[in-house]
Simulated scan of single mutants.
Amino acid sequence: MTTSNEPISFQIDCESLRDLLTQPKPPRLIDCREADELAVCAIEGAQHCPLSTWMAHWEQWFTNQSDHVVIFCHHGVRSMRATAFLRDKGFSNVQSLDGGIDAWATVIDHSMKRY
């Protein structure tokens, strides 16, 4: 999260997210993939909020517009849609993980199963 009034970038790369996750107040991780994808692999600590049920639940899942939230999916397409949706609703500290969980497995966690 930035300290100025300028919005944070729309996307975050894997290395930057890894570094933020070690901070005292890490961003909230949101996995917007479907349950069958979640069964293959997951990032520890992420909350599962499937994009297919987003419209019915987003107001329950996201209540604090100041929270730093990082959303991810498989390659980053769905998480970009989810990020754009929340930003349109006034959540300026929301980012999409560039390359999704596939990039995370490639760059950060080489033991993670890929699909």
Rank of each mutant, 00 (worst) to 15 (best):
Pro24Gly: 08
Trp61Leu: 00
Ser9Cys: 06
Met1Asn: 13
Pro50Asp: 04
Ile8Tyr: 02
Pro26Ser: 07
Ser96Phe: 05
Glu44Arg: 09
Val70His: 03
Phe91Gly: 13
Asp109Gln: 14
Asp88Gln: 15
Ile108Thr: 12
Leu86Phe: 10
Arg18Glu: 10
Gln11Arg: 13
Gln47Pro: 00
Lys113Thr: 14
Leu51Trp: 10
Ile30His: 04
Asn64Ile: 10
Thr22Gly: 09
Ser52Leu: 11
Val77Ser: 08
His68Met: 12
Lys113Asn: 03
Thr53Gly: 05
Leu51His: 06
Ser92Leu: 15
Glu6Arg: 06
Gln95Arg: 00
Leu17Met: 00
Arg114His: 09
Tyr115Val: 12
Thr63Pro: 00
Asn64Ser: 12
Ser92Cys: 13
Ala82His: 01
Gln47Thr: 13
Asn93His: 14
Ala56Glu: 07
His68Ser: 11
Leu38Ser: 01
Glu37Ala: 06
Ile8Asp: 02
Leu17Ser: 01
Arg28Leu: 15
Asp19Phe: 00
Lys89Phe: 03
Glu37His: 13
Arg78Asn: 08
Glu6Pro: 00
Gly90Ala: 09
Cys14Glu: 11
His57Ser: 04
Gly100Val: 08
Trp58Val: 09
Asp102His: 10
Val40Asn: 11
Leu38Asn: 11
Ser16His: 05
Lys25Leu: 07
Thr63Arg: 12
Asp19Arg: 14
Ile108Arg: 04
Thr22Ile: 04
Ala39His: 02
Ser4Ile: 12
Ile30Met: 10
Met80Leu: 14
Gln47Phe: 08
Met55Ala: 08
Ser66Glu: 14
Ile101Gly: 10
Leu86Glu: 04
Glu34Gln: 13
Phe91Ser: 13
Val70Pro: 00
His48Gly: 02
Val107Arg: 14
Pro50His: 01
Ser66Phe: 04
Gly99Ser: 04
Thr83Asn: 06
Lys113Cys: 01
Asp102Gly: 07
Arg18Gln: 12
Gly45Cys: 01
Gln11Phe: 13
Trp58Ala: 11
Met112Phe: 00
Arg114Cys: 03
Asp67Ser: 12
Ile71Val: 07
His75Pro: 01
Leu17Phe: 05
